[in-house]
Simulated assay, not measured.
Amino acid sequence: MAFWLALCGFLLAVNLAGGLVFVADKRAAVADRRRVPERMLLTLAALGASPAMIFLTSRIRHKTRKEPFRTLLRAILGVQIVAIAVYGANAIGLI
């Protein structure tokens, strides 16, 4: 139980941080200032911020047409969903 609470806390924090960085990148793009590198955005997504970033993509209309960023972001989320499903199935004895 403690593991799941820690995981939820971590994911909440990383989604908040990733969302804030994503919004900061959008503001920098509008103001024609220095941008956050895509590598950094994708690293945050891989650490768990992909749900926040995908939500914000359409919400603030940022990186909606940027390829391969969109595809990589969705692939990261897909891998995370599969990993959580496999871990959960293993934890309850289905695998």
Rank of each mutant, 00 (worst) to 15 (best):
F55C: 14
R27P: 02
G88C: 14
R34Y: 09
V23W: 07
R74N: 06
E38M: 00
F55D: 08
A52I: 07
A24R: 12
L72D: 03
K66Q: 07
I54Q: 01
A29W: 15
H62P: 02
L73W: 07
F69M: 06
R65F: 14
V36P: 12
G88W: 14
D25K: 00
L42H: 05
R35T: 08
G19N: 05
A75C: 06
I95L: 15
R74W: 08
G18Y: 12
C8S: 14
A46E: 02
K26E: 08
Q80F: 11
Q80E: 13
L20M: 12
T64N: 00
L11M: 11
I95E: 04
Q80L: 03
V36I: 15
V36N: 06
C8E: 06
D25Q: 02
T64H: 00
L20K: 06
L47M: 12
M53S: 08
P51C: 12
I92Q: 12
V86P: 11
R65Q: 15
I60K: 04
V86R: 06
L72R: 05
I60N: 07
T57K: 06
V14A: 07
V86M: 10
L16V: 14
F55Q: 11
L12H: 10
H62D: 03
F22V: 03
L41F: 06
C8V: 13
A49C: 02
D32E: 14
L11C: 08
R61Y: 03
I92G: 08
L47A: 13
R39M: 01
I76S: 00
F22E: 02
L16A: 13
I92D: 07
A28F: 10
